[in-house]
């Protein structure tokens, strides 16, 4: 096993061991923290596909995170108030079922990513960053003014949604659900990175004109991965809303986009477990340093600066050395 393999294994072991210990020791708050970290990691695994593999610096991934959140919020809001979602030619009702909510969250964010990708992938560099940011702000202000769903105050969901066969109100069971989804997303990323599609994408990021001259459509590859990326972050949004039993426009804010990007950069861009390491570190700092000072972001900023200046491979790169080309 490579050094990066050991780092990844240690992360997985911690993500299994710590919540289990917390469960046995009766520390539900620690499990909630771990759940928060795992959900953030999932959102960042999504972004890492676009950013790390595709080279697209999306400053608008909060759109997908927020869409996932509102997919959960709206469906559950209608279900808990016994209001039909649509009552015209046919009837659509809200739902409290997680699998259905996830499916809706994934579909809606994938469609949004397709639309945003089609428009913004005509540009690159700073313009791409600005356009994705602009989309984020559009959604943010739209939800603020959308009074039917709480406007600025957001939506509260009274009881966590259900999953067949599980008691999702039990912190450890909900955690297990989120952790499983994170593992699935990591597996997907791993497969994509090694596939012919991943090879094409990898080359498109580095030498787009080369990819065209061997007869491949690099732009379309970027669009496809942007859609997959958005869908994964959307799923994370639905889970985040379920964790808090609350959605609000802040899920769409550019701070959120920035935070997702920080997870990726902190942990290591284009490293499989980079987003996981980044999200865990972020949540740990938020908790430990947040207790010491309201201004804990100063320390985060210093750490980020150090990483960007001296350790481009992020925490994973720092521990595992230079990235190995896949073989």
């Amino acid at each position: 096993m490579s050094r990066e393999g050991y780092v990844n294994a240690a992360l997985v072991a911690a993500l299994i061991g710590v919540p289990l210990w917390a469960h046995l020791a009766g520390e539900p708050f620690t499990i909630t923290l771990a759940t928060r970290a795992v959900i953030f990691a999932l959102a960042a695994v999504g972004l890492n596909l676009a950013l790390g593999l595709g080279g697209m610096v999306s400053f608008g991934h909060a759109v997908f995170f927020g869409l996932g959140g509102y997919a959960m919020g709206i469906l559950a809001h209608h279900a808990q108030n016994f209001l039909p979602l649509y009552d015209g030619l046919f009837l659509i009702e809200g739902t409290k079922s997680m699998p259905v909510i996830w499916l809706v969250a994934i579909t809606v964010s994938a469609l949004a990513a397709l639309l945003i990708g089609l428009l913004s992938l005509r540009t690159s560099g700073v313009y791409f960053i600005m356009i994705t940011l602009a989309f984020g702000q559009m959604f943010y202000y739209f939800t603020i003014s959308w009074s039917a769903y709480g406007g600025e105050d957001g939506l509260s969901i009274w009881v966590r949604n259900g999953f067949p066969g599980l008691n999702t109100l039990d912190p450890i069971q909900f955690y297990a659900l989120c952790f499983t989804l994170l593992c699935a997303a990591l597996w997907l990323t791993h497969r994509i990175a090694r596939s012919p599609f991943g090879l094409m994408l990898n080359a498109t990021r580095q030498v787009p004109h080369r990819v065209e001259t061997v007869g491949l459509d690099g732009q379309r590859a970027k669009l496809v991965v942007f859609v997959i990326s958005g869908a994964i972050t959307g799923l994370a949004g639905a889970l985040f809303a379920d964790l808090n039993r609350f959605v609000s426009p802040t899920m769409f804010s550019w701070h959120m986009s920035g935070e997702i990007m920080i997870f990726v950069i902190l942990g290591g861009v284009a490293r499989l477990f980079g987003p996981v390491a980044g999200a865990v570190l972020f949540v740990a700092m938020e908790h430990v340093l947040g207790d010491l000072s309201d201004y804990w972001h100063i320390y985060l900023g210093a750490l980020l600066l150090g990483i960007v200046l001296f350790a481009r491979g992020g925490v994973v790169g720092l521990l595992a050395g230079r990235a190995k080309s896949h073989d």
Partner: peptide, 12 residues
């Protein structure tokens, strides 16, 4: 891969 014209396999 360019010569095969089929780069859209995502998993293998």
């Amino acid at each position: 891969l360019g010569a095969t014209g089929n780069p859209w396999r995502l998993f293998r």
